[in-house]
Design a protein around this nucleic acid. Structure first.
Length: 606
DNA sequence: ACGTTGTGTCATCAA
DNA sequence: ACTTGATGACACAAC
């Protein structure tokens, strides 16, 4: 920032400058003290003091750990450290140490709490803002001054342990014996739920501050975006420590947040409560409609010590997925669509409802193709996902589009410089392409690509502030569609866009159906081809058999002819010569003995 | 680099 | 006249 240069004697002008800049940056969530050099210097000293205290504390702790290790014995079978048998009766450690030992060995909540205490301390040192917020809200008491008591309290309120895979008993023990601050910090950062909570809070802040926070450009901000997606599973591991930390964030952001955005908070809060204030973590693994829709909404970090910031917001549990579609008479229609969609939504590419023939789209898409468009949230999230830089505004805009009643969207900053009339024949808009090229995520690329295309019309609709959802535009029957259009005053560009969206959407479905039909025809023709080949082979075999049979019969007939001929005798009792006579049969079946000689003579005579 | 595949989109025709 | 479905053709991205 510009205020990094310390001024030993700031004049009134400097103070004014600081004040102005502070006012500019207050939206970033930064407190005024951040820009006060003296204050920061003082804080720096305090921080150094705290670090020294922390170092001492860690040394003491390590001594205790070493002593405990001396009492531990590695179990050959389980690989765990178990207390040595008190054969000699010597108990060098106090009861407190013994309790530590059992904590470590059995990997109990307190052990986690200790680890988290360190992490929280790290956070407090690294994030003066958090600490400042904590001092005002009291939320981070345990962070600022962690004590075993507070730790126990934390864990008592939240029995969920840390993610086990990253903290097996053995490594945990060894890690605890090495008080490497940096490593601890890395471990803290690697906690998925912490990342998630950070992400959540950053997103939350972005919304509440209108997306200004991205200018801080902290690594955490990027990380927040990148790790935003694997939420559903991670959310199940919501940890007390992180949620407490986030509560601190939350408090702070709430203090900073303009009240204008309270409506958005109220909109999102019920979802959060719906899913994470309950113990139904199975919902995460078996997402239902709402879950899927809300995946993009920052979720966890709910109640901690019974203090749920969001719980104070009016809780309307039914104000969830349906609210996304309350903007038109197509409610029932949308609901019908949404019911089908969800589980495979992330894979959905078309998002266009195949209402005419649910099975008609390609086999693996026809079922879920209906849904995601209905929700919009999935594609929204993907837009955020694919474009980290614009994610904030996109997220905000999309939700404002989805939630705002008809015609009440706040005017967007950048608006229609885009020509919607000409769809550019399949060419991708540069901004979208840029967004995709920058996408560093590991999500299924095929899904992302299709969702990019899906979001194209959504993007346009968003840009032109179309007060309908894309799926409504596409899937409503003509009458309902016309009625819906008549209820809103749309300008020419909006009308054209809506018509294009409807045409494209329907044509997309038609193309899918057409291709499916084509594929089915191909398959059917291949089947027919196989059948015909088989019949051809069969007929050829029959023909050869018949030929063979004919040859056999000819042989038999010849044999019979000779036999009959040999039995014929002339008036002298002599047999006829086959070279001079032949047997011929007339049409009525009468057999004559015809002399060949005559024929030959006739022929020669001619 | 090139071919294949999947998908979206446009143009066009027919119902 | 307008809407919609079907389909060929094209562009593009991913593989």
């Amino acid at each position: 920032m510009e205020l990094e240069k310390p001024k030993m004697h700031p004049s009134q002008q400097d103070v004014d400058l600081i004040d102005i800049l502070w006012r500019q940056d207050i939206d970033l969530g930064a407190r005024r003290e951040v820009f006060d050099y003296w204050h920061r210097q003082k804080e720096h000293e305090l921080q150094r003091l705290r670090e020294q205290e922390e170092e001492k504390r860690r040394l003491l702790h390590q001594e205790q750990e070493d002593a405990l290790l001396a009492e531990l014995q590695l179990d050959e079978e389980t690989g765990e450290f178990v207390p040595r048998l008190a054969t000699d009766g010597q108990r060098p450690q106090s009861a407190t140490a013994q309790s530590h030992l059992t904590q470590n060995v059995s990997f109990t909540e307190s052990g986690d709490a200790m680890s988290f205490d360190e992490c929280m301390q790290l956070l407090a040192e690294t994030f003066p803002l958090v600490e400042a917020a904590a001092t005002t809200t009291g939320c981070l008491d345990t962070t600022v001054a962690p004590t075993p008591h507070s730790s126990h309290l934390m864990m008592a309120s939240e029995p969920v342990a840390l993610p086990q895979p990253s903290l097996p008993p053995g490594p945990l023990l060894s890690r605890r014996t090495s008080p490497d601050l940096e490593q601890a910090w890395m471990e803290l950062l690697s906690l998925p739920e912490l990342q998630q909570c950070l992400n959540m809070q950053l997103e939350n802040t972005l919304e509440q501050t209108g997306g200004y926070l991205h200018t801080t450009d902290t690594p955490e901000a990027h990380e927040a975006n990148y790790s935003f997606y694997p939420l559903p599973v991670l959310a199940s591991n919501t940890d007390v420590g992180s949620s407490e930390l986030i509560n601190a964030f939350d408090e702070r952001f709430t203090n900073v947040a303009p009240h204008d955005h309270l409506s958005e908070m109220t909109l999102k809060a019920p979802d959060q409560n719906t899913h994470y204030s309950k113990d139904a973590f199975s919902d995460v693994f078996y997402p239902d409609i709402i879950n899927t829709k809300v995946t993009g909404v920052p979720l966890p970090c709910v109640e901690e010590n019974g203090v749920n910031l969001l719980a104070e917001i009016p809780n309307e549990s039914e104000f969830t997925a349906m609210e996304l579609h309350d903007l038109s008479p197509g409610d029932v229609f949308d609901r019908g669509i949404k019911i089908e969609l969800i589980p495979e939504c992330p894979d959905s590419d078309s998002g266009v409802s195949v209402e005419t023939s649910p099975q008609s789209s390609s086999p693996d898409k026809s079922t879920y193709g209906d849904g995601c468009f209905g929700g919009n949230s999935d594609s929204d999230m993907d837009e955020m996902d694919m474009n980290p830089e614009s994610a904030d505004s996109d997220y905000y805009e999309m939700f404002s589009l989805s939630f705002q009643p008809d015609g009440l969207q706040p005017p967007l900053a950048e608006l229609p410089q885009q020509n919607d009339k000409k769809p550019q024949h399949g060419k991708t808009e540069p901004d979208e392409e840029a967004g995709y090229n920058q996408s560093p995520f590991t999500k299924d690329k095929k899904t992302r690509r299709s969702e990019k295309r899906l979001s194209r019309d959504e993007q346009r609709a968003k840009t032109l502030q179309i007060p309908f959802t894309v799926d409504m535009i596409i899937n409503l029957p003509v009458d309902d569609f016309n009625e819906m259009m008549s209820k809103h005053q749309l300008n020419e560009a909006q009308l054209a866009l809506v018509r294009d969206i409807r045409r494209r959407g329907k044509n997309k479905v038609a193309a899918q159906n057409c291709r499916k039909r084509k594929m089915e025809n191909i398959v059917e023709l291949e089947y027919d081809l196989d059948s015909l080949k088989e019949e051809k082979e069969r007929l050829q075999k029959e023909k050869s058999e018949n030929s063979s049979s004919v040859r056999q019969m000819k042989l038999q007939l010849n044999t019979l002819y000779l036999e009959v001929f040999s039995l014929l005798r002339d008036e002298k009792g002599k047999p006829y010569s086959p070279s001079e006579y032949s047997l011929q049969q007339t049409t009525d079946g009468t057999v004559f003995l015809v002399p060949r000689v005559k024929n030959t003579l006739k022929k020669t005579g001619n």
